[in-house]
């Protein structure tokens, strides 16, 4: 059965967990594997942290809108903000230095999701992440 839902949050790090739990509730309810739910959980958290810290520069009170759709084949998360679009291409894929204390988020998102696109929409940023049901 198809699922379509939206979640609105403001740009506070403390709000991320609520959004993660909302998305994983839908993924679990739609029968995604435990591993896939875990991947969605972590990837969404990392993406929202990036939006708050980098797109909004840590400014609180800004709006973030998450649209979730689930069908027979995939789960799609679209995260919209009203800040400048995120230039993913500016962040080169470099080997992870296991002693650094930050910068793991983008690589985790790429590894956890089956498709990730950073683009722009409605004068803001849009991150579209896809998790396939049977990847």
């Amino acid at each position: 059965m198809a699922v379509s839902d939206t979640f609105l949050l403001t740009s506070e790090l403390a709000r991320i967990a609520d959004a993660r739990h909302w998305a994983t509730g839908h993924a679990s309810g739609a029968g995604f594997s435990e591993d896939a739910v875990w991947a969605v959980d972590l990837a969404l958290g990392e993406a929202l942290a990036n939006v708050i810290r980098h797109a909004y520069g840590g400014r609180e009170g800004e709006e973030i809108r998450i649209a979730l759709t689930i069908d027979a084949e995939r789960l799609v998360l679209e995260i919209r903000d009203s800040a400048a679009p995120f230039a993913r291409e500016l962040f080169r894929a470099e080997p992870l230095d296991p002693l650094r204390t930050g910068g793991y988020g983008l690589q985790l998102i790429d590894e956890l999701m089956d498709n990730v696109v950073y683009t722009s929409a409605d004068c803001g940023g849009l991150i579209r992440m896809v998790k396939l049901r049977n990847a």
Partner: peptide
């Protein structure tokens, strides 16, 4: 039950 990259960063910093 869960750790993200920020948690990892704190653990690496403490280890270092």
């Amino acid at each position: 039950s869960f750790i993200d990259s920020s948690g990892i960063g704190v653990l690496i910093g403490a280890h270092r």
